[in-house]
Amino acid sequence: MNKNSNTYIIGYSAVMVIVVAAVLSFASLSLQSRQNDNVRIEKMNDILRSIGEGEGADSAPDKAKYVKEEYDKYIVESYAVNTKGEKVEGVDAFNLLINLKAEYDKPEADRVLPVFVSRSDEGVIHYILPVWGAGLWGPIWGYIALDVDWNTIYGVVFDHKSETPGLGAEITMAEFRDQFKEKKIYEESSMVAISVLKGVGASAGNIHAVDAISGGTITSRGVETMLKDCLTDYSAYMNKERAALSAPVAAQTDESEIPADSLTINK
């Protein structure tokens, strides 16, 4: 047979395409659920880490099972809000989280953003807000856990796609993250987020700032911008919640008085 005839070449290409497509589709379909699971587990674990739970995930014999159990135990509620400060019904917060980038690609008015609520073993409530931004080489993201006053930071987690190891990538390290604890995102009634200042000890005594990573200036700046932009999107909702907190008796006369630090959740 003439291997260089057009018929042979077309036939050959057709067979090749079909075989390759079949093999790849099969592989993709059979591995897809596992891959999606990996993504979900990772996000769940990050949410847990922002409130200081789920640390045993890497040593757990079955990471997926462990993370799912911990998540079900601590995360008691999740909902979605828009940038006007209204709750949006009928949206699964976790699906929003998986496609968070798509929300931030939309114009500000159309964004719907997830909020996660956790309750610790002692019954303390925290609100966890995902954030998303750009570092030096690629996207960075994280989770900010706030106390019930919607002001004090309880814990943060950051992660990144491709920051420089040892420099920008240090944002994932505890030394950087721990600085955020107890910092406030509100100055009086305006949202100021957290500044990331250059120089060792630059932020000492400043409740709205942390120290940048030396050598990771652009990534640090990315963290600052990310916090500012994303928390601004939540600010309408946070302002509302804060207003309700400062006037709880007037707003919720039909319910028994709720102390600010032990809010129970109406599921």
Binding site: V23, L24, A27, S28, L31, R34, Q35, N38
Partner: peptide, 10 residues
Amino acid sequence: ILVDQVLKAF
């Protein structure tokens, strides 16, 4: 692609 899919899954 196969290697990539396997890495993503495992």
